[in-house]
Computed example of a mutant assay.
Amino acid sequence: MSGATGRDGWVLPALPYGVMALVVVFELATPTGFGLMPLMSLGPAFAGLVGTKRRTARIGALAVLLCLLLAASDGALGTRRVYIAVMSVIGVTAAGLLAVASRERRDAELASVRSIAEVAQRVLLRPVPRVAGELRVAVSYTSAVAQARIGGDLYEVVVADGSTRALIGDVQGKGLEAVETAALVLGAFREAAHDEPELAGLGRRLARSVDRELEGEKFVSALLVEVPAGGREVTFLNFGHPAPLIVRADGSTLFPEPPEYALPLGLSTVGGEQPDPYTVSFAPGDQILLYTDGVSEARDGAGDFYPLAERVALLKDPDAEAAIERLRTDLVDHATGPLHDDAAMLLLRHREA
C-alpha cells in the first residue's frame, strides 16, 4: 500500500513531462515527423490532475514552445498542422486551468467540512480522562467510512460522586442520522450520570430520553458500567449490547452475560422489561474491554470473526493507550481491508492499590 502511494507521489507530477518528451522523440525520429505534434496537448491535460494553476499554465507554455521548436527544426513553421497543434495545446491548457480551479475550490470546501467534522468530533466524542477514579482509561475508534472521524458508535466516561460510570453504545444505521442519535444519547448520559444515585435509575432515565426522541425503528444498543470508589466490583447494565471482556490479572478471561438480555434503547414501545444490573468482581490488575459489534463481528478474507478472546495478550502492555492501539492494529490486519462497521473500544484498567 505504501509503495503504491510512493509511486503515485512522483508519477503523476512527472507524467506531463514524460508525455511531451515522447512526442519530441517520435517527431525527431524522421525528418518529416510522425504527425504526433497535436499530442503535445497531453502535457497540460495531465498537468491538471495535480498541482496548481501556475504549474498547469507553465507546462502549457512549454508545450507550445516545443511545438514551435519542432516545427522550426523540420521547416514546418507557418503550416496548418503546426497551427492546429498549437491551438490544441492552448485549448487543452485553458480547459486544464478551469479543471484545476474547480479542484482547488472542492479541496477548500472539503478542508472546511473536515474542520467542522473535527470540531463535531471533539464535542460529540470528547477525549476521555486517562485516569478516572479507580481506573486508567484508553479509547480507540475506527470508522468504517473512509476518512471519517465520527459515526454511529459512542462512548463516554464520567466521574460522579466518587464512582466512575462509563457508557459504550452502537447506533442502528449510518451517516448523519446516526451521528445525531449518538449526540442525543451522549447528552442524556452526561447529564443523568451526575444526577442518578443508582445505575438502574440512570438506565431508566436514559431509556426515557431516547424513547422520547427516536422515531420509527431506530435503536441504540448500549452498555453502562459503574465502578464505585474503592470498590472491588463492577456493575453492568446491558441494553442489547455485546458482553464486555474482563481480563483478570492472571490472564484468564470472562465475558459476563446479563441474567437476561433486554432490548436496545429506543425499543421499549415494542415491549420487554428494563434490564437488571449485574455485578462482577473487579480487583486491582484486572481490566475491562468494552467494545461494539464492529470489533466482534469483523471478518477476515475467509469469513472468520475476529477472535477477541485469543488476542488478550495484546493488552499486556503497561501503557493502556499503547495496549488498545496494538489491539486496534491487529483488528484492522485481521479484516484485511476496510472495516464493514465502525469499531469502538474502551479499555478500563483497575489501578493497583
Rank of each mutant, 00 (worst) to 15 (best):
A193I: 06
V128N: 04
Y306Q: 10
A94R: 01
F219I: 03
R122A: 12
V225W: 06
G169T: 02
R205V: 02
T142W: 08
A99K: 12
A344H: 08
T269K: 12
P31W: 15
P44M: 07
G230P: 03
Y141A: 08
D153G: 01
L98R: 10
P275D: 00
E196L: 15
H350T: 00
V220Y: 09
L267C: 06
L62M: 10
V23N: 03
S163M: 12
R208Q: 14
G266K: 00
A283P: 05
R351P: 01
R122F: 11
A160K: 12
A57W: 09
D304E: 15
V247L: 11
R114G: 07
L125N: 09
L22G: 11
R190Q: 02
R349E: 04
I84M: 04
L339P: 02
S143H: 07
R105E: 11
E310I: 03
V64I: 08
G169V: 01
A183F: 07
L110F: 02
V86N: 12
V234S: 14
L110T: 07
D330H: 13
V86I: 09
D317F: 02
L49S: 08
D74N: 15
L199G: 01
T279D: 06
E325N: 09
I150K: 02
A188I: 10
V179A: 12
L346Y: 04
D317W: 08
Y141P: 06
L176Y: 15
I168C: 02
A160L: 09
P259W: 05
L263F: 15
P258K: 03
S268V: 10
L69T: 04
A166I: 03
F26E: 01
G285S: 05
G266A: 04
Y155F: 08
I84W: 11
S163K: 11
L39S: 10
L315H: 02
A4I: 07
K53Q: 15
G91P: 05
G18D: 04
A57M: 05
R165G: 07
A138P: 03
L15Q: 02
L199M: 00
